[in-house]
Design a protein around this nucleic acid. Structure first.
Lengths: 204, 204
DNA sequence: CACAGGGGAGAACGATCGTTCTCCTCTCGT
DNA sequence: ACGAGAGGAGAACGATCGTTCTCCCCTGTG
């Protein structure tokens, strides 16, 4: 077996088990069994459990954000609907049978006080999501794009937590309508006639 | 030492240790030491660890919601500002040095898949919070109070998670301004002249 | 064919977990 | 004064954890 294939099989097993049942609830032996590799291989790829935990979180971060960005890019039919498509993607995610909330919030709650690596990865994940949202919002003429992006991030985190605990994917729909109203409110803050593109002062 | 005093000392220790470091990271022996009771007493009050975990969560639920309701009742100067006072209370909570997010989201992420008692308490906590918010919102003339209450709940959960991971209490302020705009949007949905209290149809 | 070496399976190790048991002390009713 | 029972301190137990070690086979090269 290749060393890279062993790595991906271990990471696949880690993602399934860690996300489903929490990190401290799954031992290295079960991980080894699920991945189908030997213990020697496991410790050859990841010298300690916290290395595997961090690698699991980092890979999940990049994949999660890539899946979201891909969905938004191909589903939204314009810059105005892109921020709302985020919540449609959330709804499909919440509807998956093994959905169990945000892996980073869960890991942070479990190990954030103990392992600073987990806290760091969780912080980076939320910061990267916020910068992605900021990019989406900037493509729409809006009074304060940073503020709206932060508000959307709050709605996203809230919807994830609510859907995880209640088990009801409808949290994504409620968050979506809230996002619509926040976008409309932020749009109302822009004075008409001052959008970039129409040169000159048309009012004053 | 009284039996009731032992119970509260154990619950005090459990709340501090479980909330600070997670549940699985603190053992019964450290709990016993912090509470200052004997192991026999500990197991006399709580026959197993999961009993203590559930009691800890239930007591925290009632205390947390009571503290919130008390703050809102004495700080808000009218029905219109009560929902916003919730976010002011969040800001003071986030600013406490040992703030580490929502105990129920954290516990659910750590043990929700394993222990169904934890999942049940977390669900009840969120449901009770939502019904409290619904009560606050119903005192304001608003088109769909249930919808607005759900949206506020999403903002609250999102602010808690965001503040926990980023460490920045400003999440409460952002959530507050979002709540203001959502309330204004929901208020705009009510037709003027149809509030209860002004008898008769003043428009039609 | 001989043999060196890497990988697989799993036993083994020390630590720690939740829980129980032992031993000793103290108190209280008669 | 004295026996009985309750409570405290902590040893002890079985299980499980993360990690390492042992043994054996398999393959490739002279």
């Amino acid at each position: 077996m290749d060393l890279d294939e062993a790595r991906t099989r271990i990471l696949d097993a880690a993602e399934k088990l860690f996300y489903d049942r929490g990190i401290q609830s799954v031992g290295m032996d079960e991980l080894r069994t699920t991945a189908g590799v030997s213990l020697k291989r496991l410790y050859q790829c990841f010298p300690a459990k916290h290395d595997l935990v961090e690698a699991y979180l980092r890979r999940r971060d990049t994949r999660w954000r890539a899946a979201l960005a891909e969905y938004v890019a191909e589903r939204a039919d314009g810059p105005e609907t892109r921020p709302l498509a985020v919540f449609d993607w959330l709804h499909t995610w919440f509807s998956e049978p093994d959905f169990r909330g945000c892996a980073f919030i869960n890991s942070f709650g479990e190990l954030g006080a103990t392992s600073d690596g987990v806290g760091r990865v969780a912080r980076e994940h939320k910061r990267a999501l916020l910068s992605y949202l900021t990019g989406l919002v900037r493509a729409v003429p809006i009074a304060e794009p940073g503020e709206l992006a932060v508000q959307l991030a709050l709605l996203i985190d809230g919807a994830i937590s609510s859907a995880a605990i209640s088990g009801d994917p409808a949290a994504a729909r409620h968050a979506r309508t809230a996002a619509e109203r926040l976008m409309a409110a932020a749009r109302a803050g822009t004075e008409p006639g001052t959008e970039p593109g129409t040169a000159g002062a048309s009012r004053k």
